[in-house]
Amino acid sequence: MALPLILIIVLLVGYPALFSIHMATLNKSMERFVGFENFTFLFSRETFWMVVRQSVVFAVTAVVFKALIGFCVAHFVHNIPAKGQRKWRGMLLVPWVIPPAMSTLAWLWLFDPSYSAFNWILEGVGIAPVNWLGDPNWARFAVILVNVWFGAPFFMIMYLAALKSVPEQLYEAAAIDGANWWQKLWYVTLPMMRNIIAITVLFSLIVTFANFDIVRVLTAGGPVDQTHVFATWAFKLGIESSDLPLGAAVSLFMFPILAIAAIFILRDINQRGNEA
């Protein structure tokens, strides 16, 4: 019975993972085994540590905002009558169902270095144009903003499902006890949603850390590498600079970071499951 699963794991997980590890231990021309040389080389590069910092800032900031916006919007949707909820859910999910490479192109036009629609509006109200993608800080803001725009609906729909699963009796009991809005949120809603929040954050963290398309389309890592994340830098090194082993090493560096985050989050969920 387990054979199909074993085959799936071996072919779709084991082989690619081992091949990546193998590739990361080869020299640039892939002719010689060099052990951890690619990793030690990366550790000595200023750009690598800049990419590490940027990836962390990008993923953490984006996930925090996606979670906050998703949480708020889920409440807004939850609080409207059930009859009209479907159309709102559908509309709010639109950013998430459009392929990100396509929607990011539209954002690129909005942020276009020379013909930004945002700048056109700003200039219309007498505000100086912003160098959205040419200034490192604004460029970071832009890639995070687009990621939040794309990812927040996922949080919204997950949180909405969690909210619907909270028994109404708990709120009624809290109301009888005299709990106000904040106390209901803090003592009823959040504890009941903790697991779904943790899982959603974990999944989103993994996906956001590995993000490629938004950064690639919007800034291609620029200006001066200051918006690169692991995936775009790995592509730059591995494919564009034809250094596949180094690109593989950069990609693999995401693994321990995400593994540690996954261990902590899943352990927390597991503990609460046992307590329950």
Binding site: P113, N131, L133, G134, A139, T219
Partner: peptide, 12 residues
């Protein structure tokens, strides 16, 4: 030069 040339790609 235009101030945004640092963000220019091959289409800009």
């Amino acid at each position: 030069l235009p101030p945004d040339v640092f963000a220019w790609d091959d289409a800009s």
